[in-house]
């Protein structure tokens, strides 16, 4: 953000942002994930070797979910990027394995130059809605309200009869379940 356009961002940036995020700074967290997405997309596409762009975007989303749910395994004393790359690598290997293809992904080759071209829009995932349908009804309604209809959490809470505290816990659980379903479904 504060770097000039096109210049590689300083290594410490992401780590600082994640540290703020772990202290509860939601805005820094959203900025971090938003900055990460094109980098992850670039890495995945560079490794995809023949897989289509939908597949790539699914791996990017799997990686983002894992980064979110597993961020308690990051040691804040360490730089964030190697941890992120390890997660992406794991998700790429996993996605290939589900396609029945073994793949070797040397993590050392992950460097920032893989960032996807700006302007490439994330593709819409055809199966996302059916995946959300497989969640328990309340989880599905919550995610649909927040993500697909893009309503604010207050409105979704009101609609589903959830107090802010309850919505907070419900959302966290719904995301954990969604991660499990994505894994089982082998998208």
């Amino acid at each position: 953000m504060r770097d000039g356009k096109g210049a590689p961002k300083a290594q410490s940036d992401w780590s600082d942002m994640m540290r703020s995020a772990l202290r509860g700074d939601a805005a820094a967290y959203k900025r971090l994930l938003t900055e990460m997405a094109p980098v992850l997309r670039g890495i995945v596409r560079a490794r995809a070797s023949g897989m289509d762009l939908d597949w790539c975007e699914d791996v990017v989303q799997d990686s983002l979910m894992a980064i979110h749910l597993k961020r308690g395994t990051w040691d804040p004393g360490q730089p964030l990027r190697p941890w992120v790359y390890a997660i992406v690598r794991h998700k790429i290997v996993d996605a290939f394995r589900r396609k029945g293809r073994a793949v070797h992904v040397p993590v050392d080759e992950f460097i920032d130059q893989f960032e996807a071209e700006p302007g490439t829009d994330p593709l819409e995932n055809r199966d996302a809605e059916t995946l959300i349908d497989r969640l328990p009804e309340r989880d599905a309604a919550l995610l649909r309200c927040l993500a697909l209809e893009e309503r604010g959490s207050e409105e979704c809470g009101r609609r589903l009869g959830l107090a802010p505290g309850a919505l907070r816990v419900a959302l966290h659980r719904a995301l954990k379940r969604l991660a499990v379903i994505r894994k089982e479904e082998g998208l």
């Binding site: 772990l22 959203k30 983002l64 308690g72 697909l148």
Partner: peptide, 20 residues
């Protein structure tokens, strides 16, 4: 779900992780 939508709900999940 678009990736931007996913990011929005991930960022909206304010339950902080515990160190493993």
């Amino acid at each position: 779900m678009k990736t931007d939508q996913l990011i929005a709900i991930l960022a909206g999940d304010t339950v902080l992780p515990r160190r493993v």
